[in-house]
Design a protein around this nucleic acid. Structure first.
Length: 216
DNA sequence: GACCAGGCACATC
DNA sequence: GATGTGCATGGT
């Protein structure tokens, strides 16, 4: 899998993912970007920033209705307002309102806790662990799954854990590498591996389907 | 207009 | 355990 990474990196270079100013901003972004274009998330985060709401205490006190209004551009705003609230409440109750305490937690235990928050699933939990917590946890998303399955590197319909394990088994356990690799896979997905693949010019073009790949 | 985007919870079988 | 559905905005 390192050859795949190197091809993408040579083509596109660093993706500078999650330029969040603070850990909280990264976490908020991870929740807001669920099934949503990042451009829209940026607008929502700008609105939160403008309102001085990128703060646990402020978020906790803010009425859901108002929070939903601020994050409106990110879509599913009522749902996501609830999810942000759920996360903040968890930090309040379990970690005394302190992200520093939360991130002092053991990685496996923190993952378990995050998954217990309504609205945080595997990808969001792992994004928080990797991009906000700088833990060596590989993030799998829809693009990653598609790329892996289409090239026959995992079986069709492989679940989250299986895809993640397949990748980390073959690359160095390194936070910066995990960060960049995930971002590059998303870039690859956007440009070449949509439902209708655009294989021309793909950096992986010459190691394409040797059978077992998805029918197109 | 259709289709898509850095998912997730919940209902139903 | 697999599959279907609601959630919503903004870009192409």
């Amino acid at each position: 899998m390192m050859d795949v990474y190197e091809r993408m990196y040579r083509r596109w270079g660093p993706q500078h993912w999650w330029p969040g100013r603070t850990r909280l901003e990264v976490i908020v972004g991870a929740i807001l970007t669920q099934n949503t274009a990042w451009r829209n998330v940026e607008r929502a985060i700008a609105a939160l920033h403008e309102a001085g709401a990128l703060d646990l205490e402020v978020l906790r006190r803010m009425p859901s209705r108002r929070l939903a209004g601020l994050i409106r551009p990110a879509g599913y705003y009522n749902l996501k307002a609830r999810r942000l609230k759920s996360f903040v409440e968890m930090v309040w109750k379990r970690y005394d309102g302190s992200l520093r305490k939360m991130f002092a937690e053991d990685t496996a235990e923190l993952r378990r806790v995050l998954l217990g928050v309504n609205g945080i699933g595997e990808e969001t939990a792992d994004s928080i662990l990797l991009y906000a917590g700088r833990r060596p946890v590989f993030v799998v998303d829809a693009y990653t799954r598609r790329v892996m399955a289409r090239h026959g590197w995992v079986e069709q319909g492989a679940d989250y854990r299986r895809v993640a394990e397949r990748i980390v088994a073959e690359i160095p356990r390194d936070v910066q590498l995990y960060n960049e690799y995930h971002a590059l896979l998303v870039r690859l997905g956007k440009e070449h591996c949509r439902r209708r693949p655009v294989c021309e010019g793909c950096p992986l073009e010459d190691l394409l389907p040797r059978g077992g790949g998805e029918e197109t």
